[in-house]
Design a protein around this nucleic acid. Structure first.
Lengths: 213, 213
DNA sequence: TAGAAACGCGAGCAATTGTTCGCATTATTG
DNA sequence: CAATAATGCGAACAATTGCTCGCGTTTCTA
C-alpha cells in the first residue's frame, strides 16, 4: 500500500530558482482556485493551467492534488502556529484579559489575510487523511492555548481551551462568510464571547423587560 | 443555461410505492456515504450501487448528484427549522434563560441524531449553489432566533443572534468531531457560552492567581 | 565547453465519473 | 384482461480528471 508520505508529501524538492518559482506558482494557483471555486474546481490540469506550467511539471513536484492541498494546509497551520506563539510570547506575564486579546488578534489577522482561502482550507482539511506533521502542528497549537489558560488558573484548561477555540472559530467563520472585515469590531465580539464563557465580567446585552404578555 | 431548478430539483415525483422506496433508498445511501466517506465518495454509480438500484433509476428521479445533495440539505434544514419552531413555541412567555435552554436542546438533538451526517451536510452546503428554498429555510431560522432575542429585550438582536448561532455551531461541531456525545454536558457548555456572550451571570472558570512568576 | 543533472513540456493514454436509452417488468386503469 | 403508464435495469457511450513518458531546453559543474 501507498503510505501517507507517498501520497501527501512533495515528490522532490526544487533545486534551481526556476523550479522554486514553478512550485510557488502551482501552490498559488491552487490557492486561488480554492478561493474562487472551492474544492471541486481543484483539478491537476486546472491548477497547472492557471499556474502557467504544464501538468508534467506539476507531477514532478507533487504526486497528486492531495499533496498540493496538504502542502497548503501545512503552510497555513505553520503560519498560524507561529502567529499564536508570537502572541503568547507577548502575553507572557500579563493577565488573562491581555492574553485573550493577543490571541484573538492573532487569530483574526490570520483569518483576514486571505479570508476565502482560510475558509476553504479549513473546509477541505477534514476530507484529507491528515499528515503526521499537520497533526503535530494542530496539537502544538492546542497545547499552547491550554498552557495559556492553565498558567492563569483557568479551571479545566483542556476542555475550556477546546471550547474557546471552537466558539472563536465558529464566530470568525460566520462573520467572514457574511463579509464582515472590521478587525476591531470582530475582536470586540470574540473577546466578549470568550470572556463571557470564562465567566469574566462582560457588559450585559439584555435590557430590563418593559412589560409582560 | 440550465437553471438551478433544473440542476437541483428532483426530476419527477415518484407516484407508486416502490418508486418512493427507490427514492428513499437513494437518499439514505447518499447519506450513509457522506457519513462514512465524505463528499468525495458521493458518486452517482456508488450511490446507486449502495442503494441497491440501478443508475438509470437514480437519474429518473434526480438530475445528478447535486440534486441528491440538495434534497438531503433541504430535508435537514426543514427538520432543523421545525425543531427550532417547536422550541420557540415551548418558550413562549418564558424568560431568556429558558428560551436559550430550549433552543440549545433543539440544536443538540439535531446534531446528535446523526452526527457525522449533520457535519458532512454542513460542510458540503457552501460548495453547492444554494436553492432558493434552502435559502428561505435558513432565513426563517435566523429570523426565529432574532425574534426570540428581540422579544426578550436583547440589544442588537440581528448581530447578537448571528454571533450566538455561530459560536454554538462552532462548539457543537468541534465537540461532535471529538466524539463527545453527552447531551447534558454539551448543553451546559453551550448554555454557558451563550449566557456569557449575552452578559448574563455565569460561574467563573478563573481562580485567584496563587503567585506571580 | 562538454557532459550531466535539473527542468519543462504537453500529447495522449488510463481511470474514474456522469449520463442516456432501449427494453423488460410491474402496476394502474377502464 | 387489454391498454397504458410507471418503474427498473444496466450496458454503453460521453465527459472529466489523473497521470506518464519521451524528448527538447536550461542550468550547473568540473
Amino acid at each position: 500500500m501507498t503510505s501517507d508520505e507517498t501520497r501527501l508529501n512533495p515528490r522532490k524538492a526544487p533545486r534551481q530558482g526556476r523550479s522554486r518559482a514553478t512550485c510557488a506558482a502551482i501552490l498559488e494557483a491552487a490557492a486561488r482556485i480554492l478561493e474562487t471555486e472551492g474544492g471541486h474546481g481543484l483539478t491537476t490540469n486546472h491548477v497547472a493551467a492557471l499556474a502557467g506550467v504544464s501538468v508534467g511539471s506539476l507531477y514532478q513536484y507533487f504526486p497528486g492534488k492531495q499533496a498540493i492541498l496538504a502542502e497548503l494546509i501545512r503552510r497555513m497551520r505553520q503560519e498560524m502556529l507561529a502567529d499564536f506563539e508570537q502572541a503568547a510570547l507577548e502575553a507572557r506575564g500579563r493577565d488573562l484579559a491581555f492574553a485573550i486579546d493577543a490571541l484573538t488578534a492573532a487569530s483574526l489577522r490570520h483569518h483576514l489575510r486571505r479570508p476565502a482561502l482560510a475558509q476553504a482550507l479549513e473546509r477541505e482539511e477534514p476530507e484529507l487523511q491528515l499528515d503526521d506533521e499537520i497533526h503535530a502542528l494542530k496539537a502544538r497549537m492546542r497545547e499552547l492555548i491550554i498552557d495559556v489558560l492553565r498558567d492563569r488558573n483557568v479551571a479545566e484548561p483542556e476542555r475550556t481551551g477546546m471550547d474557546v477555540m471552537a466558539l472563536a472559530r465558529g464566530m470568525s467563520e460566520a462573520a467572514i462568510q457574511a463579509g464582515q472585515r472590521d478587525f476591531d469590531d470582530l475582536q470586540r465580539r470574540l473577546g466578549r464571547a470568550i470572556r463571557g464563557y470564562l465567566g469574566l465580567a462582560v457588559p450585559s446585552l439584555v435590557g430590563e423587560p418593559r412589560q409582560e404578555g
